[in-house]
Design a protein around this nucleic acid. Sequence first.
DNA 1: TTTAGCACTCTCACCAAGAGAGTGCTAACA
DNA 2: TGTTAGCACTCTCTTGGTGAGAGTGCTAAA
Lengths: 349, 349
Amino acid sequence: MRFMTETLTERQKLILALVVREYVDTAEPVSSGRLVKNYRLDFSSATVRNEMAVLTDQEYLQQPYTSAGRIPTREGYRFFVQQLMGPAELPSHIQQMIRHQFYQARHDVDDWLSLSASVLANHTQGASLVTALHMDEARLNHVALLATRGRQVLLVYVLEGGEVRQQTLVFEEQIPQGRLSGIAENINQDERVKDLQTLRVMIEEAEDEVEHEVLSVILEEIEDTDLISTGNVYRDGLTNVLSEPEFSDPAAAQKTLRLFEDRSVLDDLLSKTIFERDSSGVQIIIGGEGNWEELKNCSVILAPYGTEKHSLGAVGVIGPMRMSYSRGVSAVRFVSDLMSELLTEAVAS
Amino acid sequence: MRFMTETLTERQKLILALVVREYVDTAEPVSSGRLVKNYRLDFSSATVRNEMAVLTDQEYLQQPYTSAGRIPTREGYRFFVQQLMGPAELPSHIQQMIRHQFYQARHDVDDWLSLSASVLANHTQGASLVTALHMDEARLNHVALLATRGRQVLLVYVLEGGEVRQQTLVFEEQIPQGRLSGIAENINQDERVKDLQTLRVMIEEAEDEVEHEVLSVILEEIEDTDLISTGNVYRDGLTNVLSEPEFSDPAAAQKTLRLFEDRSVLDDLLSKTIFERDSSGVQIIIGGEGNWEELKNCSVILAPYGTEKHSLGAVGVIGPMRMSYSRGVSAVRFVSDLMSELLTEAVAS
DNA sequence: TTTAGCACTCTCACCAAGAGAGTGCTAACA
DNA sequence: TGTTAGCACTCTCTTGGTGAGAGTGCTAAA
C-alpha cells in the first residue's frame, strides 16, 4: 500500500541497504536489534523498527511472519541495485590475476570463453553462463569442405564477423576431396560476402547431382543453426548455487537446475541481451521480473561483449535473489569488458 | 560373515531378485510380507524372513535398522547384475523410434552425440554422458588455416581416424591468407600421415619467423589437447537423477553434481572404458566399487563405441546405486551399438 | 521343512510445553 | 516532534513423550 511519497529519507535508505547486506550475508531475516549491534548505529533498535515499518509499508521489505525479522522484497533489491549500490569494482589485484590467466590462454578464443565462465563462477559464488561468439545473421565469408573418412565430410564455415562453425556431415556416397574442394572454391570464388539467398541461387544452378546434394545439405545446416541456440554455451559453478540455503529444498533446486539443462529459457535470456544494444552494459533481472516465470526467486546479471561494431555474445551469472549484486555486477562487467578488449585487439590488424 | 557356502538356492536367488526389483521401484526397505503379497509367492512371509536372514548373513542384503525391511547391499546388486538379470533389450518399438531419430539427424555426427545423451537420459531416468570422438594418439591427417578477422586465425585439423578439431588462434600480427595457406599446404603436402615428431622437425626447419611461430602454436595446441579431457562431453538428464529420493539430502546431491562439473573423475572413468578393449561391451560400476570413492552410492553403466578398428568414444549413464540396471544396460548397449553401426557405415566407402 | 503366532524393536507422526527471538505499541523524554 | 525504553504479545523452533504401525526374530506346532 504505497500511501506515502516514494522518496525515502537518508536513514531509511541506509537501513534498507544494511538489511540487504546483512540478509545477503546470513540468509536469515534481519532484526532491528541485530542491525544496531552489528553496524553500531547511533540510534536505537526502536527507531530502526519504526523505519522498518515504513519500508515494509512501501513494500521494500517484508516479514516472513508476524514478529520475525525483515527480508528485502524484489522491489527492495531493485531499489538497492539502482540507487544504493555504489559503482563496484573488482579489487585490482584480482583484476591483475584474471588478466594474467587470460594472457596465458592468449592463443585460443575458446579458452577465453571457458575461462570467463570459470572466473565468473569463482568470483560470484554463483552459476555462470557464457555464450560463444555469435552474429546477428548468417552471412558467409568462407567455406571449407574436407573429406575426413569414408562418407564423412567436415564442413567448416566462417561467418562475416569471424564466427566459425564446423559440422560433420555424412553423405550417401563417398565424395573425393578434389570434388569437395571444387564446390567450396565455387562458393568462395568471388570476393563479396554471400548471404543465404546467394546460396539458394547456387543450388538452383548446380551442375550435377552431387553438387546439388552438397549445397543443399550445407544450406540446411546453416539455416538450422542460424539461431543463437546452437552456439556453445559455457557453464560453470552449478554446485555453487546448489549449496545456497534457498536450494536446500530439492524441488527448488531441481527447478533451477532445469533452467540450465533446458536451453530455451537461457537462450531467450541471452539472445535478448546480445541484441538489445542500447542497454549498453550490465543488465540485472531480479526475481524473474518481467515475465520470466521460470526464474522466480533467482536473479540474473548479464552483459554483452564484443567489438565496437558487433555484439558477439553475452556473459552472465545466475544466483538466488539473495545474491551479492555488487560482486556480481563488478565481476560480470569486468569480464565482459575484458573480453571486448581482447577481441577488439584481436580484430585490429 | 560368510560362514556358509556362497551358493544360493534357487529360492534365495528368486527372493534376492525380487528384493532388488521391489527396492528399485519403491526406494523403501522391502519387507517379507510385501514381497509375498505383491508377487503372490506360494510360500509364507515367515519362510521369506528365514531366507532373508540367510541373504543378510551372506551380505547380499542389509537392514537399515533392526526390524526394518531389507535393502540390497553393493554385493547384492553385483550378484543380481551378474547372475540374475536376464539379457535385457529395449522394446523393439522403442528401438525403432530411436533409430528414426538418428536417421533424421543423419548428416551430422555431432547431433548423433547429443541425441545419444538425450536418449539415454530419457530411457534410463538417469544422467547420461557421451564423449565425442577420440583417437588414441594424435596423428595429423590434414590441416587448414583460415584467416577470419584481424589477427584471428582458425586452425582446423583432422586426425587420423577422422576426428576433427578446431581452434581459434590469435597471433601477434595479422597474417595474410595466402601465407597461411602456404604453411598449411606445407604440412599437408606429402601423403603420409604426420605424427607430432614430424611437426617438430618442421618447426626446426621453418624458413622464417612467421612460419616458425605458426607451427609452434599449432604444435602446442595439438599437444595440449592430446588428452581425452578436451573432447566435448555431452551430458543430459541431470535433473532426473536429482529427483531421486537419495538426493533429497542437498549435500549428497551436491557431491554427485560435482562429479559432473569436475571433469577429472569423469575423464578417468570414460577414458578407462575407451581404452579397455577386452571388456568388449558394457561395463557396470556399482557403488563406486574399485576405488572410485567419489562415486559412492552411485552406479555407472558404460560402453565404448566405435568402428572395428578404433574405439572412438564412450556412452554411459550415472544413477543412484538403486537404479534399474536392466533398463540401463539395455539402453547403453543399444545406443553404443547403434553409434558403432552408424559410424562403421559412415566410414565404409 | 514350513508356517502360524506372538513378543519385541524401531520408526514416525503427533502433540504439548517452554524457551527465545523479535515485533508493535505506548508512554516518557529531549 | 522525533527518539527511545519498556513491555506485552506473537510466532517459531526445539524438546520430550506417547501411541500407532510396520516388521522382525523366535518358538513351537504341523
